[in-house]
């Protein structure tokens, strides 16, 4: 086990970095898309319900199945992984963004409009900052979720630590099978934990003190 790790240290480190890199980039992309979608839907209760419905159904699609379906149009490799990971990352963020934006006190929005802020400025300076803690929570949930899904993305030859897990599983019983699967799994867990701590820190830095006191 130790040997397995020692011998492949630099390769594991590289894959771990790739894994985090995939997740971070996909979550960033998903955050942008989710915010845009949330802004489009949160004022209409019908559109909100549709978004929430799609979100709930989307999460029930097994990641394995989605990856399989994506192979046909997009082939094997990074693009397919990115699409799948971003898709799953999108759902919790979208949901939280809609809830967060809808939860902003109406009187504050009226106050903003009343002092002459435009629709866009109100959204950017008032609504999004006020909803930010809730949105950020969505981002945290999303990050944890897609750390696992990114591992599965190794199935379509995506980057990251998933490769070790599949390697281990495919050689089950053979030598080095357990260490390989363990490296993949434990690696994902450790990196997920580190990312979560970083996001917590980001939350501290980006949430106004006025919302915390």
């Amino acid at each position: 086990m130790i040997d397995y790790f020692q011998n492949r240290r630099s390769q594991i480190a590289y894959d771990g970095f790739q894994h985090v890199s995939l997740v971070v980039q996909c979550v960033l992309l998903a955050t942008v898309i989710a915010l845009v979608l949330a802004v489009l839907v949160y004022r209409s209760s019908f559109a909100t319900q549709v978004a929430e419905g799609v979100g709930a159904v989307g999460l029930t699609i097994p990641s394995f199945a989605l990856l399989g379906l994506l192979i046909a149009p997009f082939g094997l490799g990074v693009l397919t992984s990115v699409i799948a990971v971003t898709f799953y990352a999108l759902l919790p963020i979208l949901r939280n963004a809609v809830v967060g934006l809808a939860g902003v006190d109406r009187s504050l929005i009226e106050s903003a409009r009343g002092i002459g802020m435009s629709r866009f400025r109100t959204l950017w300076q008032i609504e999004i900052p006020l909803a930010w803690p809730v949105i950020l929570n969505g981002i945290r949930v999303s990050t944890q979720l897609v750390m696992g899904i990114a591992a599965v993305a190794a199935y379509v030859l995506g980057p990251g630590l998933g490769g070790y897990i599949f390697e281990g599983l495919s050689r089950l019983g053979g030598s080095g099978a357990v260490p390989a699967a363990a490296v993949g799994t434990i690696g994902v867990i450790i990196l997920a934990f580190i990312l979560d701590v970083l996001l917590l820190l980001l939350g501290r830095l980006t949430t106004s003190r006025g919302l915390r006191v």
């Binding site: 504050l108 009226e110 106050s111 009343g114 002459g116 802020m117 900052p129 106004s208 006025g210």
Partner: peptide
């Protein structure tokens, strides 16, 4: 929007934005 910048508006409880300091709130307009 431009009109409202020229007219003061106060609602119940002030309608201050909780994520901005007193100064930031006053400076908005």
């Amino acid at each position: 929007d431009e009109l409202r910048r020229r007219i003061g508006y106060v609602i119940q409880a002030g309608g201050l934005f909780p994520h901005m300091t007193v100064e930031a709130n006053v400076k908005l307009v």
